[in-house]
Amino acid sequence: MTQQHPRLREFKFTLYRIFRNPSAIIGFSLLFIFAGVALFAPQIAPPKYPHNPYLMPHKGFSPTPKPPSQTNIFGTTSGQYDIFYGVVWGTRTAFKIGMFVVGIAAFVGVTLGAVSGYLGGIVDEALMRITDVIWAIPTLVLAMAIIVAFGRGLDKVMIALALVGWRWYVRVIRSEILTLRDQDFVQAAKIMGVSDLKIILRHILPNAIYPVLIMASMDMGSMVITASFLSFVGLGAPKGYADWGQMVALARNYIVGPPGDPLKFWYAIVIPGGCIVLFVLAWNLIGDALRDAFDPKLRRR
C-alpha cells in the first residue's frame, strides 16, 4: 500500500466526517442544485433581453397574478412577471449577493481583527472602540442609512451589507488570536526570527480561520435574507429585477386571496419565498456540518 501524504489524509478524514452527517448531505445537495441552476441559468431560462438578462420578461401590466399555465409554468406575479424566470435568475442574484458581501466582510473583518489582536495596545484599543461604536447601531438601520446615503440599487445594498457585516468577523478572529498569540509555538516562531507578518499569515491565521469559515457559510444565508428584506421594502433591486426578495415584494398585496379562496395566489408567494428559505437552510446546514467536522474536541474519538 502506498503511503498517502499526511495532508491529503487529514483532508480525506475531514471530508469523511462532513459526509457522515445527514444534515451536511442535505445542505450540500441543496447547494449543488442552486449552484447548478445559477450556472446554467441562460440554458434553463433563456433571457429575453440578452444585454440585461436579470430583467424579468413580462406580458402586460395587470396587477393580478396568474396561476401556472403552459407559457408560464410557475405562473406570473403582479405586473405579469414570469415567476419561473425570476426564480432561476434570482438564484444568480442570491449567489452574487452572498459571495460579494461575505467575501468583503470576512476579508475586512479578518484583516482588522488579526492586526488588532496580534499588535494589541493602542492599535487594538482604537480599532475595537470603533467596532463597538458600529456595533451600537442595529444592522438594518445602519444598512438602510448607508443605502439612503448612496442611493438605491442592488449594488448599493451589497456595499451596505458588507460595510455592516465585517464587525462580526473582527470580534471572532480577534478572540481566536488573543488565545493563540501567547501559545508557545508563536513564541517559538518569534525566537526563530520569523517576522510579525509571517507569524500572522503562517502560524496564527491557519489555526484561527475555522470559526470564520463556519460563520461565513451561515452568513451567506442571512445576508441573502437581509438583502431580500431590503428589496422587499423597496431599497434594493429596481422594479422587474430578478431577485427573490423583490418578487415576494411584488406579490405582497396578494398574500391572502379574495374572500372564500384565501390561498388563491399561493404560487406568487410560496415559490420565491421557498427559494429564500431553502437557500438559507442549505448554508446553515453546511455551517453546522463544518462546525462539527472542525471542532477539535469532536474530531477524533
Binding site: Q183, D184, F185, Q187, A188, I191, G193, R202, P206, N207
Partner: peptide, 21 residues
Amino acid sequence: VRASLQIIFQDPFSSLDPRMN
C-alpha cells in the same frame, strides 16, 4: 542574536504549530 540563543519549551504539545509538518 536569537539565532545563537535558543529555547526549548516545557509543553511539547503547545510549542509546535499543529498545522505544520
